[in-house]
Design a protein around this nucleic acid. Structure first.
Length: 875
RNA sequence: GCGGGCGUGGUGGAAUUGGUAGACACGACAGACUUAGGAUCUGUUGGCGCUAGCCGUGGGGGUUCAAGUCCCUCCGCCCGCACCA
């Protein structure tokens, strides 16, 4: 009897409808089973989903469906990171309102995501641009404000004078606005800040406890927070203008103070500005420094440059010793005090600088042990600083001390030394982390709920007046902030005194929106409050968060801060929102280029093999197309494939299966036609074999045979081992290995199917085997799994079927075959009882022909038996 | 420059974390079935011998009974970044 090919379009629609009808993915907050919260980073509604989304959401769905089958109450929601600049750009360009643009994109993308067959509780869907979402964000802003976690202060911004708007760093290209092309100005604006620095130390130390986060991400956050322990130290100036009696510097190496040979201040240090006023050459130098770019590349390649001010600083440990004060291009005003002392022997920048300008280089720290000491000294003479720990030299009372001891000794002395009525120095912990500026001069964002009153100052909008809604009738045809232009919106009475006042027209950074959505998902039904304490505390933290590495720092750090701020204001009860984090790799594709050099999209290209060589031609024109390297999918390289087309052609299960196969999930994966084809062939194979099996196996629920044949036992072992391995692999997110285990099981079942005639117990074993196969693929290819499950005679859906318990007596063999090495090379195998002790294994090994032959009657020097692993005979 | 990661067949990748290198898949080759197949099935597929043998995880060296895995060194690629005092 011919078996019909599996039709993914029909079957996938059928099962998705069945799940929707039964509402199987709706989660009740009253569910008392153990909880599991799976979350993938929610998408920006850019218009259409891309293959990166397919990979991300497939991985999350595997975990969600698997945990569901294991009996957990799984929270697996979806929403939209819906505020942001692209919507506003679309408004300017296409005259479409940002809200319309955004909601249309959401509708498209929601429909696309639904075709993937994700086990999402759509009743919890949120969009951050919806007033019923951002009203709670505004409430929390006012709570943070009252708790002292919000601050208004001046900060430098990139200002586009044509568009009259603030630009993000990445929107400044070669010093010009990306859209207007105008030269960008640095402007000081009053901005709202969240005081993330209040939590700097806690955000740092808590990283140690996030043991289910990638080390790489934790390291990046650690570096970003950038804690350093040092000393603030004031030097008396000699020859400086009035008002500049002292120069305060910050150093992490007070131990190297006797190696000081110059002071260096930032080009925008007040002292530099003051001196430049009467010194055209210095003014020119300062201007030159400011022209220099700030990218890592320019900075790394920039030469160390300085300008001698003629001012001197008096050494704090020797009043007779004066060091020159320079302005240097490598000192940053934003960090520490904008001034340093230069110790050339201990810092590469300082030694470069000193050698360029002929300043002294005095070694003050050298390695303790002799060969290293001489090498260190030679290196310093050759221009390489020694910045390691060691022993003090040329440092008077510090000589012979360790670096640490010298640090403490200098600090102790300078803390006790008074200058102008205060200790001359004080220990200080510095952080690189700055407060989080959230003000954006844009329309399409969450309005900052503040009203500015001449008498009362900034007043938070009362809770009863929330949300502060965006006006629908904003216009986008002139530069600047549409909220500011709006004729009426900003004019309101002061909530405190009733006098005419005006609204804050800045909106919040969209990172605020995404810093708490995971908490909102726990109870998006609560209209009164952002969260419901009993609910949010039950479901958080997110057990498994999955997303791209590009959010390693900002989004994840802001969310960690936000959880702390929400805790401080009573909105939830924990510090760390994400217990487990996984960062998945990107999706790549081969690139294609026409003879004219234009990029050609994969959809237009036909790849064929001729004489073992891969070639490509244009599907329509037949033109020869060059095959290029495999690159990250991008519009500019045109090497994207459209998930809609993939799903229409092959079905969602094929796309999902491909995304999980082969490449480890944290690594990049290249989408290939061959791979998709192979994944689809496997879909058909599982279906076909299941149909074949269904014709011969006993009906569902038939009693198990009292005795199993050897072939039946072999099938049962294969099935139980495969399922146990899949469990283990999914728990570890090793989806590629789970896929391999499924292939192995399928191969075993296929082989056994041919031998089943006349062996009733084998047929029973095959029922179990094919059921296990369906169970094993269910998290990965859920539609196919349902179809197979139905074919196997089940009336309940597999989505409601608990994951079976594997039988450990079938998973663990009672005899094992160990490889036998002679002198480290494998020469034989030995099969022994699993429980065999070392002596028994040795005896069995010594009886092997290969061993007897190799030993030639001699006694082996040693026999190493590694239980359950290997035997090595040393002759 | 600093920090992190990686290097395994023609390709993507496995390898129980010091214990049989190449699981599984792609591709390729040969054959079967077929009107046909880009379907399906059966084989083969790291290299050299092609016989019971030797070599082989970027190169070189080391530790060990045993190294893809640990150490040293060199080469190559990728990612991140902050001239952070």
């Amino acid at each position: 009897m011919a078996i019909e090919r599996y039709n993914p379009r029909e079957a996938e629609t059928k099962w998705r409808n069945a799940w929707a009808e039964a509402d199987v993915f709706r989660l009740s907050n009253d569910d008392t089973r153990p909880k599991y919260y799976v979350l993938e980073m929610f998408p920006y509604p850019s218009g259409r989903i891309h293959m990166g989304h397919v990979r991300n959401y497939t991985m999350g769905d595997v975990v969600a469906r698997y945990k569901r089958a294991r009996g957990f109450a799984v929270l697996h929601p979806m929403g939209w990171d819906a505020f942001g600049l692209p919507a506003e750009n679309a408004a300017i360009k296409s005259k479409v309102h940002p809200a319309k643009w955004t909601y249309e994109n959401i509708a498209t993308m929601r429909a696309q995501l639904k075709t993937m067959g994700l086990s999402i509780d759509w009743s919890r869907e949120v969009a951050t641009c919806a007033p019923d979402y951002y009203r709670h964000q505004q409430k929390m802003f006012t709570d943070f404000f009252k708790a002292g976690l919000v601050e208004r202060k001046k900060s430098k911004v990139n200002w586009d004078p044509v568009d009259m708007t603030v630009l993000a760093n990445e929107q400044v290209i070669d010093g010009r606005g990306w859209r207007s092309g105008a030269l960008v100005e640095q402007r000081e604006l009053s901005q709202w800040f969240f005081k993330i620095t209040d939590f700097a130390d806690d955000l740092l130390t808590a990283l140690d406890r996030l043991d289910r986060w990638p080390d790489k991400v934790r390291l990046m956050q650690r570096n970003w927070i950038g804690k350093s322990e040092g000393l603030k130290l004031r030097w008396v100036l000699d020859g400086a203008p009035a008002g500049f009696d002292e120069l305060e510097i910050y150093t992490t190496r007070p131990d190297t103070l006797f190696g000081a040979s110059f002071m260096a201040i930032a080009p925008d240090h007040p002292l530099a500005a003051n001196l430049a006023a009467n010194n055209p050459a210095l003014a020119e130098f300062v201007a030159e420094c400011k022209r220099m770019g700030t990218s890592a590349e320019t900075i790394e390649t920039a030469e160390k440059k300085g300008f001698d001010t003629g001012v001197f600083a008096v050494h704090p440990l020797d009043p007779s010793w004066k060091v020159p004060v320079w302005v240097a291009n490598f000192v940053l005003m934003e960090y520490g005090t904008g001034a340093i002392f230069g110790c050339p022997s201990g810092d590469q920048r300082d030694i470069d600088f000193a050698r360029k300008y002929g300043l002294p280089v005095v070694p003050v720290v050298l390695p303790a042990d002799e060969p290293a000491r001489a090498a260190g000294l030679a290196a310093i003479e050759a221009g390489t600083a020694f910045d390691g720990d060691g022993v003090m030299v040329n440092s008077r009372f510090l000589d012979g001390m360790s670096t640490d001891a010298a640090f403490d000794a200098v600090v102790a002395r300078l803390e006790a030394q008074m200058l102008a009525g205060r200790p001359q120095a004080a220990r200080q912990t510095n952080f690189r982390l700055r407060d989080w500026g959230i003000s954006r001069q844009r329309y399409w964002g969450c309005p900052i709920p503040i009203i500015h009153c001449e008498d009362c100052g900034p007043v938070p909008v009362p809770a009863a007046d929330l949300p502060v809604r965006l006006p629908d009738d904003a216009t986008f045809d002139k530069p600047g902030n549409p909220l500011d232009h709006h004729p009426t919106w900003k004019h309101v009475p002061c909530p405190a005194c009733g006098k005419p006042a005006r609204r804050e027209t800045d909106t919040m950074d969209t990172f605020v929106d995404s810093s708490w959505y995971f908490a909102r998902f726990t109870d998006p039904f609560n209209e009164a409050e952002p969260t419901t304490r009993a609910v949010v505390d039950r479901w958080l933290p997110v057990d498994q968060y999955i997303g791209g590495i590009e959010h390693a720092i900002l989004h994840l750090l802001y969310s960690r801060f936000y959880a702390r701020a929400m805790k401080a204001t009573g909105h939830l009860g924990l510090d760390e929102p994400f217990a487990g984090l996984f960062t998945q790799g990107m999706v790549l594709h081969e690139t294609y280029r026409s003879a004219a050099g234009d990029w050609v999209s994969p959809a237009e290209v036909e790849v064929f093999t001729d004489n073992g060589q891969r070639h490509a031609r244009h599907r329509q024109t037949g033109e020869t197309i060059g095959i290029g390297s495999v690159e990250k999918m991008s519009k500019s390289l045109k090497n994207t494939v459209d998930p809609d087309e993939i799903i229409a052609t092959w079905g969602a299960d094929t796309a999902r299966w491909f995304m999980l196969s082969d490449s480890p999930p944290e690594r990049d994966v290249a989408w290939t036609e061959d791979g998709a084809d192979a994944a689809h062939r496997f879909v058909q194979r599982v279906w076909r074999l299941t149909q074949e099996a269904a014709e011969i196996i006993p009906p569902a629920g038939t009693a198990l045979p009292p005795v199993w044949s050897d072939a039946a036992i072999a099938v049962r072992k294969a099935a139980h081992k495969a399922l146990a391995a899949v469990e283990d692999d999914i728990e570890k997110l090793a989806f590629n290995r789970a896929v391999a285990r499924v292939y192995e099981l399928t191969n075993a079942l296929h082989k056994a199917l041919g031998d089943a005639a006349g062996d009733a117990s084998l047929k029973s074993a095959l029922r179990e085997g094919f059921e296990f196969l369906a169970i094993a693929i269910a998290p990965m290819m859920p539609h196919l799994a349902e179809a197979c499950w139905e074919s196997l005679g089940h009336r309940d859906m597999i989505v409601n079927t608990p994951w079976p318990q594997t039988d450990s007596s079938l998973v663990i063999d009672d005899t094992i075959t160990l490889p036998v090495q002679i002198n480290g090379k494998k020469r034989a195998d030995v099969t022994v009882a699993r429980a065999a002790d070392v002596a028994e294994v040795q005896a069995a090994v010594l009886a092997l022909d290969a061993v007897v032959k190799a030993l030639e009657g001699k006694t082996p020097k040693k026999i190493i038996v590694v239980p359950q692993r290997i035997v090595n005979v040393v002759a």
